[in-house]
């Protein structure tokens, strides 16, 4: 497991370094937006990946309520944690970019509002966990909050698609025209996306393992208690 971790971390390091090299040295400066545009190479993958956890949470929380096995709860919990981290970073990097470009740190644009709501939903999920003491009640409540929260995120996202927005169009992804971008830019986007995707996957796996380990320690402790109790009574 340690070796796996090291390989994974090594890969992330290589990808991150190449992404940074591409972003700051290879990629040409944007004609309209200037140097500040370079933050997009970090901001866009962060923002796109922030939208993945609600999907994971919806599926794993439903599975937890049906199956009641703690591993689904652990996976839902860690996706929310990583989701919160990514949403925070997306909001911060976006804000840094908005200041020189739009002249303000924040604007009540639908896309921005969506992310802020998503951020609140993630925090609510983590709060209900910390305010509920009994482990199975905690898992049940957070699964319910997780399911409704992800539906809510979806609703807000769809609504923001309908609203007018000043948020820049998504020039990457399947919707964008193929030849719209310089090959260096395309490579930069691709590499930084891969780097951040690896980081995303790694942190979720890492946290899930951690939560599962905590669960296991809990049940082992129960078993030890059980044994001690039995021995001391007989």
């Amino acid at each position: 497991m340690l070796l796996q971790n090291r390989i994974m971390l090594g890969l992330i390091l290589i990808a991150m370094m190449s992404a940074l090299y591409l972003i700051f040295i290879m990629v040409p400066t944007d004609v309209n937006l200037g140097v500040s545009q370079r933050i997009f190479y970090i901001h866009v993958p962060l923002a796109v990946l922030s939208l993945i956890p609600p999907i994971i949470v919806f599926i794993t929380s439903t599975l937890y309520l049906v199956r009641r096995s703690p591993q689904w709860d652990a996976l839902a919990h860690s996706s929310v944690e990583v989701g919160l981290l990514f949403t925070t970073l997306a909001l911060v990097t976006g804000s840094i970019w908005a200041r020189p470009t739009w002249g303000v740190w924040w604007t009540w644009d639908p896309v921005l509002t969506t992310f802020l709501i998503l951020w609140l939903v993630y925090l609510g999920y983590l709060l209900i966990r910390s305010y509920t003491v009994e482990p199975d009640k905690r898992a049940r409540f957070s699964a319910i909050v997780g399911i409704l929260g992800s539906i809510n995120a979806l609703a807000v996202y769809l609504a923001s698609e309908l609203w007018r927005t000043i948020h820049p169009d998504k020039v990457i992804g399947p919707a964008a025209e193929e030849n719209a971008l310089d090959p260096a830019i395309q490579l930069g986007i691709l590499v930084s996306f891969i780097a951040i995707l690896l980081l995303f996957a790694y942190t979720i796996i890492f946290r899930t393992r951690l939560h599962s380990a905590v669960n296991q320690i809990g049940s082992l402790r129960d078993q030890i208690d059980d044994l001690v109790y039995r021995i001391s009574n007989k």
């Binding site: 709501i117 609140l120 939903v121 925090l123 609510g124 709060l127 209900i128 305010y131 509920t132 003491v133 409540f141 909050v145 409704l148 929260g149 809510n152 609703a155 807000v156 609504a159």
Partner: peptide, 18 residues
């Protein structure tokens, strides 16, 4: 939960924003 008066607004307000 342990903090009912805090937990409800934390869950409720973001959920009904849409």
């Amino acid at each position: 939960t342990k903090a009912r008066e805090i937990m409800l607004p934390v869950l409720f307000f973001p959920a009904v924003i849409p």
